[in-house]
Design a protein around this nucleic acid. Structure first.
Lengths: 345, 345
DNA sequence: CTTAGCACTCACACCTTTAGAGTGCTAAAA
DNA sequence: TTTTAGCACTCTAAAGGTGTGAGTGCTAAG
């Protein structure tokens, strides 16, 4: 958190410059801001204040005779202390809620739709990170023997997510035994996260080592492989929206941006850190360590099932995004998502 | 097919110009081509021939004092009659084969890897359209009752593809009945495509209408919903490669291109027509009806399981792509894919 | 402390000029 | 008849020069 104290007037001017810069993307001059916002002082006074704000490091001047542009610190300060959120209209809210509820029971589609909504409403890239595999709460597991040495494992999570894996298994075993084992897992571990199940299994195996026969041990091993965490799935939509912003029109910048979007693991890593804190978070510029996204801002919020954080929804765009409307958008989307997931029992 | 007959010399010059244009992307002049390819004639002669080729419509001159650029017709002719394919090196071949075989049993990953390979080797966008749902051959189907009014259906295809669907089902039914029905489907219809299964079910239901009790009919209906075709899945990788090509550096063109890539259904529609013919196909420029891709070329080949065409692999890039190496690349990738899918029984 | 006035700065748009690549045509050579 | 050298011509793109306007900082008066 930045500890800067500003006079009301300075705040007013900061706010006006930021607002105008969000719209135009060009350096904002004193006269322009004066005309536009009808501030009760002359351009000269505004100029003086702007010079002061530049001294503190909130503004930056591309060249001597240009207007001012907010610096990263400027954005940070604006977001933390001045910004007034503009709640979504009830219209928009019902639209979002309905759209997501339409896809009930199909989690993948719900998540895809969420990223679409985020993108369409914000005019930036909309991102949703699917629930982490190891955080999924086990509801049901099933093994199907496909042929002699191939087993299909199906895991149903409490949110309705379904995972399946085909695993080579070179030990002769019949479907009955597999079903019995699945049954054992279902009765003993339903309600735990897959991560926990995995761990408990290791413990069980260690504890009762003596008791187990060879086959049973193999099956334990098999389920270890089934519960191996997998890559996180990331839904991204609206990446082309960034083409509308002149600050990214440089081919070099654009390539690195789009490459970052294409490499979904980068986005997954970036949004991983939002999981710490169950509320909406904003990252500006170099607060984002990820290559290619340092000129961007991210508004992100985790979504949950009950108390458990599952994944993240986010909007990624240029620093000059309209935080006042986008923060509530992200917040609300996460909230609706959490609600929908809570009701899937 | 175009019916144009050219002298050897004209072919040689066409070939040289095309080759040089592939490398530079800029209009090719007579002197440059003469120096580079050491053709046994003077620039003036080359100029004359180039003028002739322009008359036929194979070349185009951006302005009076510029070199020549192949027209769409020019590309078509070149591809159909002059092009010499340059087979992949054994090195590359084993690399591709190994990479794909590594992911055995995980069809999704195999397809994803295929698109990655296509993109990495061609330096353009690599595309793979997953097998069409209704063409999947049924190997195994299973119903799992999740809760009172929710059924999870799992379909395993003969290629190892697994589909799952969660379906609301408001008729009280126990797991036993569901299993019995699944069993019926497995024994009666395994080996048929899902499309066929769907149709047969309708017939069965009609034929024996009288015999069925209410529940049984509901279950029939349920499986109709399960077998509903779903959107085709498309894997695209390397879309950012197009940023390297100056012909797309115009922001407008780029946006429409990237938008087309983001809207995967457009790509699916485009590649749908390749399913007709089980061999590699090339589409140039306006032969592609799809919005935003009219300045591109597509090299596509279906992949199969046995005699059945399943889906398509393709490379999408600028018209001046290196067809000589890309056609064999696409051909080979489709072939390896078909081999791998053939062995999954 | 605020503001009007003014000199000064700098990017950008616009014009002109120039260099160079490439052409088409003509007339000579093969 | 075909090929080639020579040359005038065309057009683009880069380089340089100029003017305009938005915007500043400073100073001195309100």
């Amino acid at each position: 958190m930045v500890s800067i104290v500003l006079s009301n007037r300075a705040k007013q001017i900061l706010s006006a410059v930021v607002d105008m810069y969000i719209q135009t993307g060009e350096p904002v001059g004193s006269r322009a801001v004066w005309k536009r916002y009808k501030l009760p002082m002359s351009p000269a006074t505004i100029r003086n204040v702007m010079a002061d704000l530049e001294d503190i490091g909130l503004f930056y001047q591309p060249h001597t005779s240009a207007g001012r542009v907010p610096t990263e610190l400027g954005w940070r300060f604006y977001i933390d202390t001045i910004l007034e959120k503009r709640p979504l209209s009830t219209q928009h809210k019902t639209k979002i809620r309905q759209n997501l509820k339409e896809a009930k029971y199909n989690i993948e589609q719900i998540l895809r739709r969420s990223s679409h909504i985020l993108s369409a409403f914000s005019h930036h890239a909309g991102v949703v990170v699917a629930p982490k595999f190891s955080r999924i709460v086990l509801k049901h597991i099933e093994f199907v023997k496909l042929k002699k040495d191939l087993v299909l494992a199906i895991i149903v999570g409490s949110t309705g997510t379904v995972y399946h894996r085909i695993i080579p298994f070179y030990t002769p075993i019949d479907q009955d035994n597999l079903s019995r084992f699945a049954n054992y897992l279902n009765t003993s571990f339903a309600g735990l996260t897959l991560g926990e199940v995995r761990q408990k299994l290791v413990e069980e195996m260690r504890k009762d080592k003596a008791e187990f026969d060879a086959i049973w041990r193999k099956v334990f091993h098999l389920s270890q492989r089934v519960l191996q965490p997998e890559n996180e799935y990331v839904y991204i939509e609206g990446t082309t929206n960034i083409l509308n912003y002149p600050e990214f029109s440089d081919v070099q910048t654009m390539r690195s941006l789009l490459t970052a979007f294409e490499e979904k693991s980068i986005i997954a890593r970036l949004l991983d850190r939002t999981l710490q804190d169950a509320k909406v978070q904003v990252f500006v510029g170099s607060e984002i360590a990820e290559e290619g996204l340092k000129e961007c801002s991210v508004v992100a919020s985790p979504y949950m099932r009950g108390e458990t954080v599952l994944g993240t929804v986010a909007v990624i765009g240029p620093m000059r995004m309209n935080y006042g409307t986008i923060i509530p958008l992200v917040e609300y989307t996460a909230q609706v998502l959490s609600e929908i997931l809570a009701n899937t029992d």
